[in-house]
């Protein structure tokens, strides 16, 4: 199996653990991801807020490059472009869909692309999210056959976030309100999947930079929900979700007086561990919330990690008794 691959800016550095683990897993599964040469940013959620046509032209350059590359390398196959980042997947599929729906927009975009000697015909690529390709093309059986270190006893909260199954501009492969493909994948790896009612709720996206209070509350809800179900970790498939839940977890603890220590890993990292790869080979160690205590459960951590520092309680318990929700005390 061979696919065009659009890593997106996050996977170059911030979410390099996602890229590293994906490449290691793909090799085991015999899947080839050919990176689109000289791709550019998809525009995230920022470009479209300022200029409409430039945003569509920016994303379309990637589609034109990917389609050209597919034509020149494997003309026989339908060209498929895979994005591991939910926002990249959404932007590329949305632009492809809108160019098809609006010939006027397509004409303007192609007039802009022509300034760079490029052209893109809407619909000439199949744009897919990585999880879709893993569970539907590779399939659960093939994956199960590679598992030699099952994640037995690991309690996982599967977190899908927003954009992978919503709003379904192209290639919807799971339920938009309550998807289950990542749940099944984690079970195939031997893990115990906990119910996670907030699995498609938003992580806050860029709100950490716009309104910290709004973002931290959204992140808190997700962490609390996973803690309520006693998950050892949250598994995600989007670099933005990973960053928000991981890097801002301490900020949530400071803001709300909580003591969450829930590691946030990419699903490809868990696949790699179940395939017997070492934690280092799947990029473990890049996370803010150390994953090693949780991984020790499955014997995947080489050395025991230092115990997490206990936070001082926000209020002294010498004062007047205050009403407290029992489930808020400790994660």
């Amino acid at each position: 199996m061979r696919y065009g691959y659009y890593p997106g800016c996050s996977l170059e550095r911030n979410a390099s653990a996602y890229h590293t683990s994906l490449m290691a897993v793909a090799e085991r599964l015999g899947v080839e991801f050919a990176e689109v040469d000289d791709w550019n940013c998809c525009g995230a959620t920022e470009f479209i807020a300022v200029n409409r046509l430039r945003a569509y032209a920016l994303a379309s350059r990637n589609l034109a490059l990917a389609a050209d590359q597919a034509r020149s390398t494997n003309g026989a196959d339908p060209a498929q472009l895979v994005a591991p980042c939910s926002a990249c997947f959404l932007n590329l599929s949305k632009v492809d869909r809108y160019l098809e729906d609006s010939p006027a927009l397509a004409a303007d975009v192609n007039a802009a692309l022509a300034a760079g000697g490029l052209h893109y015909e809407a619909g000439s690529l199949r744009i897919r999210h990585l999880l879709d390709v893993i569970v539907n093309d590779v399939g659960y059986e093939q994956i199960a056959a590679r598992v030699n270190s099952p994640l037995r006893g690991m309690r996982i909260a599967p977190y899908y976030g927003c954009l992978i199954v919503r709003p379904g501009f192209r290639e919807r492969f799971d339920d938009p309100e309550y998807p289950t493909s990542l749940d099944k994948l984690m079970r195939v790896l031997g893990a115990q999947v906990v119910d996670f009612p907030l699995k498609t709720h938003c992580c806050g996206g860029h709100m950490t930079q716009i309104s910290r209070d709004v973002a931290l509350e959204l992140i808190r809800r997700l962490l609390k929900n996973a803690a309520d179900y006693q998950a050892d970790m949250i598994v995600t498939l989007c670099p933005m979700c990973q960053l928000n839940l991981d890097a801002f977890q301490e900020s949530v603890n400071e803001q709300f007086g909580t003591n969450y220590r829930i590691p946030i890993l990419f699903f490809t990292q868990l696949m790699g561990l179940a395939f017997g790869l070492s934690p280092a080979a799947v990029g473990i160690g890049k996370e803010f919330i150390d994953a090693r205590p949780a991984l020790a459960k499955i014997g995947a951590a080489a050395e025991p990690a230092a115990p997490a520092p206990k936070r001082k309680p926000r209020r002294s318990d010498q004062g007047l008794p205050l009403p407290q929700m029992p489930e808020e005390e400790q994660p």
Binding site: C162, R166, P167, G168, E177, C202, G204, G205, H206, M207
Partner: peptide
């Protein structure tokens, strides 16, 4: 936040 929950 561009989460598309409302659109869905």
């Amino acid at each position: 936040v561009s989460c598309y929950a409302c659109v869905e």
